[in-house]
């Protein structure tokens, strides 16, 4: 193993060159002594997202730019977006385990692709994460189509799930509402993947057509048309399901 590396603080451009510079021929007042920032990883701080104020687009763009060089900035992005992506993928898959796995894939891919990421005006970073997550959901759906698993609602999942308007936490009521969602979810799973994506983003994530278009990389008109056709097809699927029952 080679000798330990040296870390020398780079110049700040003001002539203060190194972490600590000693000039024996100068008086104290003229000396430059400085130490600077080192990029560092974070300490474990969990579930901090809820305490974080939302970032403006400018602030976010700055954070994304820094994240390319500064791992701690990427952690900040992670903390800000983890819950959103996990929840999106949960609503797409209705399985905690799968949602967590796909969330992991999403963030690892984001980490790898960050250098090549180019932010666009008025488009939040989260849109990019949504796009990666949507692709993950698509790949999962394709594989699960070949090996369909029964759509179950494990008790552990039910304990972690809540509904914003469900009133007091009540496992039985939660399960009931989850069953209601699951019925719709089952119907959506029978649609083409592109229909699933637009419906999920539009109705469960509550996005505008423009945002959906941005995430899916399609024109707004195309998205509107896709949503319309998806709704019609969904109505037919639900009708079939009711008829089967």
């Amino acid at each position: 193993m080679a000798e330990a590396p040296e870390f020398v603080q780079p110049s700040d451009g003001n002539g203060i060159v190194l972490w600590q510079e000693h000039r024996t021929d100068q008086s104290m007042d003229q000396r430059n002594t400085t130490f600077g920032e080192q990029v560092i990883p974070s300490r474990p701080k969990e579930n901090a997202e809820s305490r974080r104020p939302s970032l403006s687009l400018t602030e976010e763009a700055e954070l994304v730019n820094r994240a390319r060089m500064d791992p701690s900035a990427f952690e900040e992005l992670y903390e800000t977006n983890y819950s959103t992506i996990l929840n999106y993928l949960y609503r797409r898959t209705l399985s905690t385990a799968v949602a967590e796995e796909l969330t992991s894939n999403t963030f690892f891919k984001a980490l790898r692709g960050l250098r090549g990421f180019r932010s666009r005006p008025n488009v939040p970073f989260r849109s990019w994460l949504y796009r990666i997550a949507s692709n993950e959901a698509k790949m999962y759906w394709r594989s699960s189509k070949r090996h369909p698993a029964p759509l179950e609602l494990p008790d552990d999942d039910c304990l972690r799930v809540s509904f914003s308007w469900a009133g007091r936490a009540d496992p039985e009521r939660t399960r009931e509402k989850l069953q209601q969602y699951a019925r719709l979810h089952r119907a959506i799973l029978r649609l083409k993947e592109r229909y699933q994506a637009v419906l999920g983003l539009r109705y469960f994530e509550g996005m505008k057509h423009e945002q959906v278009a941005e995430i899916l990389g399609r024109k707004v008109g195309t998205v509107k048309s896709l949503i319309h056709r998806a709704l019609k097809e969904l109505a037919a699927v639900l009708h079939d399901m009711d008829a089967t029952l």
Binding site: P41, S42, P44, E46, N47, E49, P71, F74, E75, Y78, E79, Y82, S83, L86, N87, Y90, R91, T96, A99, E100, T103, S104, F107, F108, L111, D157, R160, V161, S162, F163, S164, W165, A166, K177, L178, Q180, Y181, L184, F204
Partner: peptide
């Protein structure tokens, strides 16, 4: 149809540790 929301589990911290380790 209600929209379910799932609470963060230990996965959040675990994934963060993995990402940090990767970084």
């Amino acid at each position: 149809t209600p929209r379910p929301r799932i609470a963060d589990g230990p996965h959040r911290a675990r994934l963060k540790r993995q990402l940090v380790a990767r970084l």
